[in-house]
Every structure is written in C-alpha cells, then in structure tokens.
Computed example of a mutant assay.
Amino acid sequence: MRVVRAMLVIAAASSLAGAAAWNYAVGWHPSTGEYPIQGIDVSQETGPVDWLTARARGVDFAYVRAIRDGTRRDRRFQSNWAALGEAGMRRGVLHQFSLCRPAESQADAFVTFVPRAIDALPAVLELDLDAGCAARPDRAAVLAAIRSFLAVVEHHTGSPMLLKISEPFEQAYPVSGAIARPLWASQDFFAPLYLARPWRMWQASTIRRIDGVDRPVHWDVVAP
C-alpha cells in the first residue's frame, strides 16, 4: 500500500507540474520591456474575436488573413476587418501564398477582396509549405512567382509587403536573402535565427490564450 500511495503522490505531483507548465506556456509572451509593440494574427480558424477586450489585454495591432490557399477569401476576413476599424485598432492583412496557384490568379484575388486603406499596416505575404498542396516547383520558379505577385499587389496597396516566411519554406526555397522586403519569422518561445537578414516581426507563440478569444491566437511582436 505504501508503494501504491507513493506512486499516486508522484503521479499527482507530475500532473500538477505539467498543468503549471502548460498554464505558463499558454499565458507567455515576450517581455514588453524588450518588445513594446505586440499583437496577434488571426484567421477563420481563430473564431470570433472580441476586439475591445483583446485590446484591453495588450493587443496593440492585429493582422487578419484575407486570402487562404492563394485565391480563396478567408471566411472571417470581412467581419474581422470591419470590427478592427470600429475598435480603432491598427490592422493589416495577410495573404497565404500557394505553390499550387498561378501568381497572377493570387494577385487578382488580393486586389479583388482586399480594399485599399490608407491607415492599414503593410500587407503580409505568408510563405509556408502546405500539406494540401503537393507542388514543389524549383527555386527559380518560386522566386519569380513571388516577385510577380509582389509587383501587382504592391501597386494596389502602395507600400512594400512583409514576407512571413516559415522555417521549412526558407529551407526549401531560400527567400530571405533573395527578395529585399521586411521579414517576419515564426518560432515558438525562442527568437528565430533561420533567416538571412534580421527580422522585422516575430511570431513568438501559436498557443497564447487571451480574454476575448475562445481559441489560441498567434502572438506577434515588432522588433525594437
């Protein structure tokens, strides 16, 4: 019986330690002393957001996905975009690039679905390897497609886009050293080092929980 009780005590302690670690992880964000400007990026997967509550919990800005899979409008884009404007928050849009869609079609979708807004933050091109797209063109073709997309969209927005590049995409198609645009890197908890140039923004967590949102959010900081 003593052995059993000891095992139960150890199991309970491990469970409590695990719960404490998880609670810390989902509440963590980089220091505001080091990174004063912090925000989130959201998509239809995030679900509804109470933007006034989010702002009160330290969200300085928000990026909302406008286009997914290259040409499809995110289902929550319009409602998020309008609500952010009503809340008086700084807002920007993200376009999820697809290796399975022509760059021209993707640029047309962006111009069609994303309104010009003089108060908008610079738009973002998300570059990641999508398991739902099996196409893997060679690097020259990918860089040409990205440049073609940027030429059209930047004419529409009037400002250079940021490139949000995942580590797998950067490894497959080294982009950060080839296209001179501000960079956005992604890595949970530890500042990323995989890009060829310093990043302007960092997605520091994909599991942060905040009041005003039922699901985890992507938490982002701006380089000081």
Score class of each variant (00 low, 15 high):
222 V>N: 00
171 Q>M: 10
198 P>W: 06
88 G>P: 09
181 R>E: 01
144 A>Y: 01
173 Y>T: 06
40 I>K: 04
33 G>N: 13
173 Y>E: 05
33 G>H: 13
104 E>K: 13
164 K>N: 14
136 R>G: 10
151 A>T: 15
186 S>L: 13
129 L>D: 09
96 Q>T: 12
20 A>I: 06
106 Q>K: 06
76 R>A: 14
18 G>I: 03
112 T>R: 15
136 R>N: 10
112 T>K: 12
222 V>A: 09
60 D>Y: 07
13 A>W: 01
195 L>N: 03
52 L>C: 01
223 A>K: 11
48 P>Q: 10
174 P>D: 04
136 R>E: 02
144 A>M: 06
188 D>F: 03
31 S>I: 09
90 R>V: 02
31 S>Y: 10
9 V>D: 03
147 R>A: 15
198 P>D: 01
2 R>Y: 06
29 H>K: 12
15 S>L: 15
212 G>V: 04
82 A>V: 15
178 A>T: 03
184 W>L: 04
163 L>S: 03
208 R>H: 11
173 Y>W: 12
210 I>Y: 05
146 I>R: 00
163 L>Q: 06
70 G>T: 05
38 Q>V: 07
3 V>P: 00
181 R>H: 11
92 G>H: 00
166 S>E: 02
26 V>N: 08
7 M>E: 14
35 Y>T: 07
211 D>G: 15
56 A>D: 14
142 V>H: 07
56 A>I: 02
62 A>G: 01
202 W>G: 07
49 V>M: 11
130 D>R: 12
181 R>N: 03
64 V>P: 00
213 V>F: 01
5 R>E: 14
184 W>Y: 11
93 V>W: 12
140 A>D: 12
68 R>I: 12
8 L>G: 00
39 G>L: 05
56 A>K: 11
193 L>W: 09
14 S>A: 15
54 A>Y: 05
46 T>Y: 02
75 R>W: 11
149 F>G: 08
34 E>C: 04
201 M>G: 01
38 Q>C: 08
67 I>C: 00
177 G>A: 09
224 P>R: 12
56 A>N: 13
13 A>T: 14
175 V>R: 02
7 M>H: 12
171 Q>E: 13
168 P>H: 03
12 A>S: 14
211 D>C: 01
